[in-house]
C-alpha cells in the first residue's frame, strides 16, 4: 500500500508530501501516527506542506494546521501547482510556492544511506536537523544542537547537544574524536558528560539494554 504521507528532509526544510487521493481523514491519521513516533524530533520544525496535485480546501488546511500545532510544528509554506489549493492556502495565511521553485536534494552516492554532510564548525545557536544521519567534519561547539533520525558522526570535538535516533531508532550511535557533549540523547535515553571526563581518544556512544554506553573507538563492538 502506498504511504498516506511522506516526511522527508530536503534542502529547503522538512517536507510533508500528501498522498494524491487518499481520504483526508486517513492522511491526518497517518500524520498523527508519524508524529507520535518522534515528538521531540519534530518539535519546532518548520514544515513545507506539499499537496501536489491534490484538491485542497480551506477546511482541509485548517485541520492539518491544527494537527501540526498540536505537535509543535510550524508551517513554512504550501507547495502546490493547483490554483484552488493556492487560494485555499492564502485564506489560511500560508505562503504558496510552486513545486518547480524547490531545490532538489543533493544526489547521494550509492549504498551510503541518507546523510547530511557538513564540513564546518557548528557554532552556538546553530542547529542541524536531518531525517537520516548527520556527519560533521569540524567541531560542534557548546550551544549548537544536532538532531538526526539516524546516527551522528563528528570528526572533531563534540561539545554541543546531540540527539541521534530522534524518531526512535535504538541502533543509532554518536561518534566523535572528542566526545564531550553538553547533552547526548539516543532515541529516548539521555546522558550528559561527567564533569571530570576528559576524552583522550575517539569514542562512540550507543544504546545497550536501554542504557547509553560510551566506549573508546579502538574497541568497536559492532
Amino acid at each position: 500500500m502506498e504511504e498516506r504521507i511522506t516526511l522527508k528532509g530536503s534542502r529547503d526544510g522538512l517536507r510533508l508530501i500528501l498522498h494524491p487521493d487518499a481520504p483526508w481523514t486517513e492522511v491526518l491519521d497517518a500524520l498523527r501516527a508519524q508524529l507520535d513516533q518522534g515528538t521531540s524530533f519534530y518539535q519546532g520544525a518548520r514544515l513545507l506542506i506539499d499537496v501536489g496535485e491534490r484538491a485542497t480546501t480551506d477546511a482541509n488546511l485548517q485541520e492539518l494546521l491544527a494537527v501540526m500545532e498540536a505537535y509543535g510544528l510550524e508551517p513554512e509554506a504550501l507547495i502546490t501547482a493547483a490554483p484552488t489549493a493556492r487560494s485555499a492556502g492564502r485564506n489560511v495565511g500560508l505562503a504558496a510556492r510552486h513545486p518547480d521553485t524547490l531545490r532538489s536534494a543533493p544526489a547521494l552516492p550509492a549504498n551510503s544511506g541518507e546523510g547530511l554532510f557538513a564540513w564546518r564548525t557548528i557554532r552556538s545557536g546553530q542547529e542541524l536537523r536531518y531525517d537520516g544521519h548527520i556527519v560533521v567534519i569540524g567541531d560542534v561547539n557548546a550551544g549548537a544542537e544536532l538532531v538526526a533520525s539516524g546516527s551522528i558522526i563528528i570528526w572533531g570535538r563534540l561539545r554541543g547537544t546531540v540527539h541521534a535516533g530522534a524518531t526512535g531508532d535504538q541502533s543509532a550511535v554518536v561518534c566523535a574524536l572528542e566526545l564531550s557533549p553538553t547533552l547526548l540523547r539516543i532515541a529516548d535515553q539521555m546522558a550528559r558528560t561527567p564533569d571530570n571526563h576528559r576524552p583522550t581518544r575517539p569514542e562512540q556512544a550507543s544504546l545497550e539494554d536501554g542504557q547509553i554506553v560510551v566506549v573508546p573507538w579502538d574497541a568497536p563492538r559492532r
Binding site: T121, R123, S124, G125, Q126, N141, A142, G143
Partner: peptide, 12 residues
C-alpha cells in the same frame, strides 16, 4: 567566548 561563537555563526 561562547557569545563570540554565536556571533561568528551569525556573521557567517
Amino acid at each position: 567566548v561562547r557569545d563570540a561563537d554565536r556571533i561568528v555563526g551569525l556573521v557567517e
